[in-house]
Structures are given as structure tokens and as C-alpha cells.
Design a protein around this nucleic acid. Sequence first.
DNA 1: GATGAATGAGTCTTCATTCAT
DNA 2: CATGAATGAAGACTCATTCAT
Lengths: 206, 206, 206, 206
Amino acid sequence: MAEQVGKRQERAAATADQLLAAAREVFEARGYQATTVGGITDRATTAHGTFYLYFRNKEDAFAKVMAQVLDELYEEAEASWAGDLRATIARAVRGFLVVFRAHRGLWRCLLEGMHQSPTLETIWLDLRRPFVERIERTLVLLVSRGEIRAVNTRATAYALASMVEWFAFTHFALGEPSEDDVAFDEAVDTLTDLWLHAVYGRVAPM
Amino acid sequence: MAEQVGKRQERAAATADQLLAAAREVFEARGYQATTVGGITDRATTAHGTFYLYFRNKEDAFAKVMAQVLDELYEEAEASWAGDLRATIARAVRGFLVVFRAHRGLWRCLLEGMHQSPTLETIWLDLRRPFVERIERTLVLLVSRGEIRAVNTRATAYALASMVEWFAFTHFALGEPSEDDVAFDEAVDTLTDLWLHAVYGRVAPM
Amino acid sequence: MAEQVGKRQERAAATADQLLAAAREVFEARGYQATTVGGITDRATTAHGTFYLYFRNKEDAFAKVMAQVLDELYEEAEASWAGDLRATIARAVRGFLVVFRAHRGLWRCLLEGMHQSPTLETIWLDLRRPFVERIERTLVLLVSRGEIRAVNTRATAYALASMVEWFAFTHFALGEPSEDDVAFDEAVDTLTDLWLHAVYGRVAPM
Amino acid sequence: MAEQVGKRQERAAATADQLLAAAREVFEARGYQATTVGGITDRATTAHGTFYLYFRNKEDAFAKVMAQVLDELYEEAEASWAGDLRATIARAVRGFLVVFRAHRGLWRCLLEGMHQSPTLETIWLDLRRPFVERIERTLVLLVSRGEIRAVNTRATAYALASMVEWFAFTHFALGEPSEDDVAFDEAVDTLTDLWLHAVYGRVAPM
DNA sequence: GATGAATGAGTCTTCATTCAT
DNA sequence: CATGAATGAAGACTCATTCAT
């Protein structure tokens, strides 16, 4: 009996994995709106109804897919902020671009889904907030130490995050500028450079 | 005869205006996907079929709504780039934010629609490209004159445009950061400041 | 004043002609169901509403188009039935095929419209009936003279008419058999031959 | 488990039957164009969407209805072609008329649908071609044996098929000639007689 | 736990017809 | 006479969700 339950749970877990993987693939390939429950269950080779044993609805499925990706992202973000200034920023920028590039379909999907569902909007905002807050904390520290000029740390943090994020989106998801025009390393360098100068640069009084 | 035609044309123009205005309002309020032709004609108090007298379909209606807004934006963008450097950038940034804030619903709608229709994606890309190209031309000039360090002008132009654009979107359309936290002038100042330093700043060798 | 009325009438007649010609072309090219009032007025370069000054509706327009064609057909059919037997039949068959081939689009249209509107069904039945009746009268005469065997003249007349008519339809409108496989003269010869033997042939008792 | 599946499959099969029967009835009664999906599901007392579980669209539903009828027809056509000549032809003619009379609504529907959808045109052409080809093969044989005069076998086969087919259509579907004027057996006899003489008849030289 | 048949709400689009000008 | 803007009815098709087995 206990064995049976064990087997059942195993089977259930396997089904869950299949569905989650299928959902990820379909969302990635087709986008949020174009993804249908039927499409996911077809790919997972389960019955249509089985979907609802593991997800409340499409939104929920996507949220669970994104949770997976987030783990990867947070890991990447753990990268030390120690060491040379430029190198630190470059590492962070590169990390983000690498993850974004790897999952461009899903990011695009998230951006798309955000418009369709308040829940996904919240998910997205909650996902990026830690990154922005980390930037802000760093800025506060730098200002307090007098290492950089006084800036509106909140607005600055959001602006810098926006720069990297939206550049990544248009570049990788929309091909503007094309990857032919701007190589990956150039993108990292430019964003790093802009970030560095934006924060640390000194402008001669005019 | 001419009078008669005049009256009819007047009425037709009025209907067209009603529909366009209604479309604008509904798109603004509900977003792209949630907007239905029925919703628009209800608001315009015309028959359902009348919609198709003036638009080919929903996509076409949205494109025509955006064309209106674009005119405003281009006008705004005509603002002179002459004069003090910081003031020039500030003027451009402020102009963009003013228009964006005034039409946040529509911008959001455009960003949403972009995912649903290749046509709208093209519209959006075509809309922003002139701005990015203008930035790039300016950068090329500045570099050639030796006024700023050598940068990848293409990537830089896209990155700076992204910064302003996406900050505006999250700020005005999603309320992150909230308008309470960051006042309009602070936003303008911060974006201007970052832009200025990112481009003109000198970083002490580390 | 009288002059004005005259001019008006002239103009009206011209419009009527334009519309009728346009209707004929559009029906011929697109078929009954696919023809729209808008399509006809577009081709006639008149206003949409003008159509209803000259026709009650689509059905009526088609009926008027067919009336034109009928005149041609009846003229053709006037061809003398005098002279050599085989030549007479051949002349009739050829006449029919010539007219059908020249207006295959309209015939097809008629056959199609017949299913959509009882009026057109009646038109079509009324159009063919005189031909069938003529055949029948001839058969009655031949039987009474003992020139042919006793046949059910009514059924025979309809059967022979059907043979020619439906052969023409599938051949010219549907391409079965193709015009490559069966040349025009072969079609005439075969139908004539079958008609001749069907009526005049003697079968050895079996 | 097998039992459960069995029950579900049974129910599904029942639904399929209901829908197919309903489709047949509605097509038969209203014709192709006038038949709506809603009309079919109403008659089958299923939800609108259920229709699309079993058919791709209206065209597909009609094709499936016709497939049923075809089976009957082919069975009928299996009737032996052996034995007395006249009897053989009579059997074939009678078989065709019996099936046609039984499904006059559907045949009419097919003829109508043929004009609306290339697929249905193909279905119809494919359906009749075997019959025509069979006739042609027979004719080729008879000619080669010298039992009948040399004829264009292709054209003759199509002409004879047309005669029976179109007579049946106008007679049973349009009532011209009416069934009062021409009794069923008379129709069979006349068509048989015409066929026989058309092929085997000898005409005295004139 | 898994299945998959059934549901039915929701939208776009076409077009014949009318009527004020 | 001619115009053409406006009407609104009608129908096909999709898909998220439920529930009996």
C-alpha cells in the first residue's frame, strides 16, 4: 500500500515534470497569448484535463515556469560584487545578458503576459525589484561614502536597470540593434561603460 | 449640390472622428487584446458594421490611433537641440516623458499589441528608430570632434534610448517607481544627469 | 424641360446599361454567391445605392442578365430543323454547345443560383422547357408517323435534353472530360450520333 | 478500466452518430449554403463547440455525410453486369435512380456545394468518375469486339452518364418532369431503352 | 491520479438594403 | 436621378474549464 502510494507519487511527479517542461517549451516558442492548454498537453502527451491537476490555469502554469528560470537568474546574480569596479559591473551585466539571451523566448513571453494578466505583472515587478533594490543600496553606499556625486538613488537605480533590461529585450527578442551589428561582447562593454560613466563620471562644469 | 456633398462629408468626418476617438479611449483604457470592435462601436454609438467603413480591422484602427499620437511626438521632438548641453538633453527627455505620460495607456497598448501582431511590432520599431538614429548621429559627431570618448555609437544610442523609454514605461504605466517616490522633475533630472554623465563623464583611472 | 427629361432618360439608360454589363461580367467571373452588389457597382463605377434603382436585388439583376443571354440562345435555336436528319440534330447540338461554351461562366452561375433561389430555379426551368417541349413535339410526330419506335415521348425528351445539357456543363464548366481529351467537333459528333441512334436506332431482338 | 473507457467511447460514438445524422438531415432539408453549424448542433442537441470535436468545418461534415451515401451507392453498383444486355443496363439504371431518389436532398446539396467549395467539386468529380470509367471500359470492349459501331468512347461514356444523372436530378430534385407524368418504372425503361439504342442501335443509311 | 468528451461564451467580419441629401 | 454613409443581422470558429468515468 505504502508502495503504491509511493509509485503514485512518483508517477504524479513525472507527469508534473512533463507538463512543466512542455509548458516551458510551448511558451518559449509561441508566446503567452498564442499558447493554449491544448498545445501544452499535446506536447506533454497527457490528457487535456490533466493540466488542471497541476495548474490552476494558463497564468499559473506560466508563473511556475518562470519560477524555474528565476532560480537560474538568482544564482547568476550571486556572482560576487567584490573586486575591481568595472569588472564587477561587467560581470553583472554579462550575467544578465547571458540569462536573457538563453531564455529570450520566455522573457518575451513574460513581457507579453504582463499586459494580459495583473498577476504576471506582479510577478515581473517582484522579480526585478530585488535587482533594482540591490543597485539602489549600492548607490546609497557610494553616495554616503562620497565616492560618487549625490543622485536620486531610487530613480537612478530604476533608470540603470531599465537601460540594461530594455536594451536586452530589443536586442535579443526583437533584433534591434541586430546581433550582427552589435556583438555580444560589444553589448556588454557598452552597457558596462555607460553604467560606469553614468555613475562615476565627472563632467566638467559648463 | 456642393452643399449637399459638404453636409454628407461633414457627417462622415464626424463619424470617423467619433470612431477614432472611441478607439483611442477604449484602447487606452482596456489594452490591445481586451479591446473589441464592439466595444469601440458601442462607445462611438455607431453600428457595428460602421467600424469597417473606416478601418480594415482592429489592428488598422490601432495603427491610425497611434499615427495621431506620433504626430504629437514628432512635434515635440522638433524642439531645438541647440544651446547648453545639459539643457538640450533635459529638453529632449522632458519632451518624451511629457508625451509618454499623457498617453501612457496607449504606449502600454502599443507594447502589448507588439506581441500580438507583426504589423504593430513594425510600427513600434519604425516609430522609435528615428529617435535612436538621431541620437546615434549626434554621438558620431561628438566622437569625431573628440568631445567625448570613443564609444560604440550604435549600441550606445540604443542603450540610452532604452533607458529613457523603459524607465518611462515602468514609471508611468506600471507605477514602479511610483510617482510619489519620484516626482516628474526628479525623473527628468535624473535621466538627464545619467545621460550626460554616461556620455560626457570622465572616469578617473582606477 | 423636355430636353432635360430626355437627357435624364438618356443618362438613366446609360447607367442601366453599365450596371447590367457590369453585373454580367461579375456574375460570369465570380459565380452567383460570390457576386456582391458592391462588386457590381464597383465595376460599373456607380454608387452602391444606384444598383437598387434598377434592380430589386441580386436575384433580379441576375434574372435580367440571363434574359439577355436567352435572346441569343433563342435566336440560335431558330436554326431550321429542315433537311437531312443527322444534319438537323447536329445543327441543334452544335448551336447549343456554341452558346454554352461562350457563356460557360453564366451557365454555371445559373446552375449555382438555382440552388439558392426558387426564382432562379423557375427561371432556369422555364428557360429549358421550350427546348424540351420542342423535342417532345418532334418525337410525338415521329412516333405517330411510325418513323421511330413507340417511346415515352415526355421522358425521352427530358433524357435527351439532359444528356446534352449536362455533358456541356461538366465539359465546359468543369473540364470533365477535358477539352484536350474531347475536341469540340468530337463532342458535337458524339452527342449527335448518340441522339440519332437513341431515337432512330433499331436493335436486333435478343 | 476497459469498461470505463468502453462507456466513454460508446457515448462519444453516440454523439458522433447524432451529429452525423443531424448533419445529414439538415443538409438534406436546407441545402448546403443554408445549413449552419448552429442548425446542426441544435438538431443534434449538443453544444455548438461539440461540432468541432467531430468535424473540421461544415465542408468536412458534408464530406462525411456523403461518404456514407457513397457506400450505399457503390454497393448498389456492385450489382452484376452479367446476363441479358437490356436487363444489365436496366439494373444499373434502376440502381442509380433508387439511390438518387432516396437521397435527392443530399444530391442536390452536393450539386449546390460543388459551386461553393473546390473540395466538394473534387468530391463529386471523384465520385462519378469511377462510374464513367466503368462505362468507358465496357464501350472499349464492345467496340473492340465489333459488337457496336466505333464511337468516341470517352465522350460517349460521359454523355450517357450525364443523361442518367441529370435526368435523375431534374426529375427527383426539381420535379421536371413530374413524378406524376413519368412513373419510376417508365423512367427506368426509357433511360434503359435510350441507352441501349444509343449504343447498340443501327440506323438505316439515309 | 488520469482521462478526454462536452460545454458555451466570446468576436470578428461580410454584405444586402435603406434613406437622407 | 444619383449618391454613399449607415445599418445590423447572421455565422464560423476557438479554447478555457468542468466533470463523469
